[in-house]
């Protein structure tokens, strides 16, 4: 049987959780297929930068890869639903919505396939959003009013606008300096970045809003997938399901370990149910704006999340 090579492009290094996630996919697939499928991982953006992955995989330039979900927004604007604030009530709701086979996933994955030619294999958890601040903790929507806030996406900017703040789009690497020099008042980032980028040295309060998620997607060129034998196809889909859950469990466990560790370095604030309700009310306009501006799938995606 001829051996098929699956080349995988990844922005992050092999040692990163996402790299490990692909390696565990590799070991399952290679073992179950009896060597008829071979996975080659090209980490650290050796082949493509993150923003090129949708096109590279979609066009078949490379067989598979991981990209930040937001990278698909140019072709499927509705994927940014993941950034709509406080749409997912809690961790359980988030897990249900993002797992393979959910209503939301079906709508988005189908649209991504249709628009780009990339088949979504699984979603890769990366972390959840937190707010950073100096002087006093952020508890209520009013704490954002009049503040200059670092964001990392368009919808997150809408959130800040809805709360009466001024959003500034800024890459992750520029955060430390921006906080240190007080170029912005409030930070928005993933919890793990607070540790890895040592942001606790320049911000002393962290609010675990966990209001939106940061997700990557593992995609495969659809033509390539269709060209595989039925048994190999199901091996890939099975493996995807396994490593999807693996990574999500691992990431959320790591996140809580990091938060515990950070408690000694900064003040960590949780939001009560009551407080979350206030945030949800204050950002309701973002949902409307999302439905209005994000095209045909936006409304059905929101409905899919809200219908339980």
């Amino acid at each position: 049987k001829a051996e098929k090579i699956i080349r995988v492009t990844l922005q992050l290094p092999e040692t990163h959780s996402l790299g490990q996630n692909w390696l565990s996919f590799k070991s399952i697939v290679e073992k179950k297929s009896g060597g008829s499928l071979k996975v080659q991982l090209f980490p650290s953006a050796q082949l493509y930068k993150d923003k090129q992955v949708p096109e590279a995989v979609g066009s078949g330039a490379v067989e598979a890869g991981s990209a930040f979900l937001g990278r698909f927004a140019g072709s499927v604007p509705a994927v940014e639903v993941i950034n709509v604030p406080f749409l997912f009530d809690n961790e359980a709701a988030l897990r249900a919505a993002v797992s393979t086979g959910s209503k939301m996933r079906n709508i988005l994955d189908t649209a991504v396939l249709k628009e780009t030619g990339a088949k979504v294999l699984w979603w890769q958890a990366f972390g959840r959003n937190v707010y950073l601040n100096n002087d006093s903790p952020i508890r209520l929507p009013a704490d954002i009013k009049g503040k200059k806030v670092r964001t990392y996406g368009k919808i997150l900017g809408w959130t800040i606008e809805a709360l009466g703040g001024a959003p500034t789009l800024m890459s992750g690497s520029k955060q430390f300096l921006a906080y240190q020099q007080k170029a912005v008042d409030v930070g928005m980032t993933g919890a793990s970045a607070v540790k890895s980028r040592k942001l606790y040295e320049v911000m002393n309060h962290m609010t675990l809003s966990f209001d939106s998620a940061i997700e990557f997607v593992a995609v495969m060129n659809n033509k390539f997938f269709e060209g595989l034998s039925k048994s190999n196809q199901s091996i890939i889909l099975e493996a995807s399901k396994i490593v999807e859950k693996q990574l999500r469990d691992q990431i959320y466990a790591e996140e809580s370990a990091i938060v515990d560790e950070l408690r000694s370095k900064m003040t960590v604030t949780d939001l009560s149910e009551n407080e979350r309700a206030k945030w949800r009310a204050a950002t309701e306009g973002v949902v409307d704006r999302f439905i209005k501006e994000r095209g045909k799938n936006a409304e059905s995606v929101i409905k899919a999340v809200r219908k339980k």
């Binding site: 493509y48 923003k51 090129q52 096109e55 590279a56 066009s59 078949g60 330039a61």
Partner: peptide, 15 residues
């Protein structure tokens, strides 16, 4: 190997 990667590389490099 797919040659469509060539223009993709070219765009990405200058971007």
């Amino acid at each position: 190997l797919p040659l469509v990667s060539v223009p993709q590389r070219l765009y990405g490099t200058m971007d």
